[in-house]
């Protein structure tokens, strides 16, 4: 996966060089040349890849992207310490209120869709679970794989930490107001979840679709495979939009505007898809069929 990501990044950079400047490179007086992007670890790879692409075309701009969690992204935007907050959930009412109190008006840009895939160890014979079964596993009602047609192993439940947007989305879409069991393990990043699952036979966990690779096995939920199509069509039950929030709508022609609308360009869609997320708009037919 890491290698895939690297090659994707390299590809993006190379493309950036070849295509020269597709993005507006005007430098009007009030245009900031340094953009700070902070927030979700899920959206982070997209923000980084987009930044890399944008930087290759605009040498005079600096974009720094950090990943500290959706909540921290919102906090940074509220405190005006970042220009764009990447978030894997919508802003909460309290956050919105705090922002308005500080004269910051958060504007949401939906940049991509994310499926949360439920994953298990590759050796696990279980292929499909219903949403209810996933919930029962996490609430502790189902404790052994044999209860859902697997081997006689105690289920090791792994979750993202409560700090992450992925957790909040999973909690929202799957848990349905029920509490997770006390023996659920919490892990600090998508990479760490994958690491724990690929080394634990009896583990179950959940990951953004972009982080799923061959070392873990994704389950179908109610017999729907998590893919770009099922996600866009809404058949797959655990999917969510990913956001970038800016303070007010960015000034047209500014670097910030170009950056946060990059997802609309064919190149932006390609970057998003290369990372395993689902772009909102389909490719124009000329750009070729969607690869799957």
């Amino acid at each position: 996966m890491m290698r895939n990501m690297c090659s994707a990044m390299a590809l993006v950079t190379v493309c950036g060089f070849c295509m020269a400047a597709p993005a507006p490179a005007q430098d009007s007086g009030g245009n900031k040349n340094e953009l700070v992007v902070d927030g979700s670890t899920t959206v982070g790879p997209i923000a980084k890849a987009l930044a890399e692409y944008y930087l290759a075309a605009n040498k005079d701009v600096k974009i720094s992207v950090s990943e500290s969690g959706s909540g921290n992204g919102a906090k940074s935007l509220i405190n005006s310490t970042c220009d764009a907050a990447t978030m894997s959930r919508f802003m909460k009412d309290e956050e919105f209120k705090a922002a308005v109190d500080k004269r910051v008006l958060p504007i949401a840009h939906v940049i991509a869709l994310d499926c949360i895939a439920v994953v298990v160890h590759p050796s696990n014979p279980v292929k499909n679970l219903t949403l209810d079964q996933v919930r029962d596993i996490y609430t502790g009602k189902i404790t052994n794989w044999k209860q859902v047609g697997g081997p006689d192993l105690k289920i090791v439940k792994i979750s993202r930490d409560t700090n992450s947007g992925t957790y909040e989305s999973f909690d929202h879409f799957v848990m349905n107001q029920e509490k997770m069991a006390a023996d659920v393990e919490y892990v600090g990043s998508n990479g760490a979840i994958r690491q724990r699952i690929q080394s634990t036979n009896a583990a179950i966990g959940y990951l953004g679709l972009g982080f799923v690779d061959r070392t873990v096995k994704e389950l179908t939920i109610g017999n729907v495979v998590p893919t770009r199509e099922t996600c866009l069509s809404g058949q797959y039950p655990i999917s969510r939009p990913l956001y970038m929030f800016t303070n007010g709508y960015p000034e047209l022609g500014s670097h910030l505007h170009a950056y946060v609308t990059l997802y609309l360009t064919p190149k932006g869609q390609e970057i998003i898809e290369a990372l395993g997320f689902v772009p909102l708009t389909s490719y124009p037919p000329a750009a070729g069929p969607a690869k799957e």
Partner: peptide, 12 residues
């Protein structure tokens, strides 16, 4: 360490 990020006085 794990809960600090989300737990601003803003959110609760």
């Amino acid at each position: 360490a794990g809960d600090m990020g989300e737990a601003d006085h803003v959110t609760g």
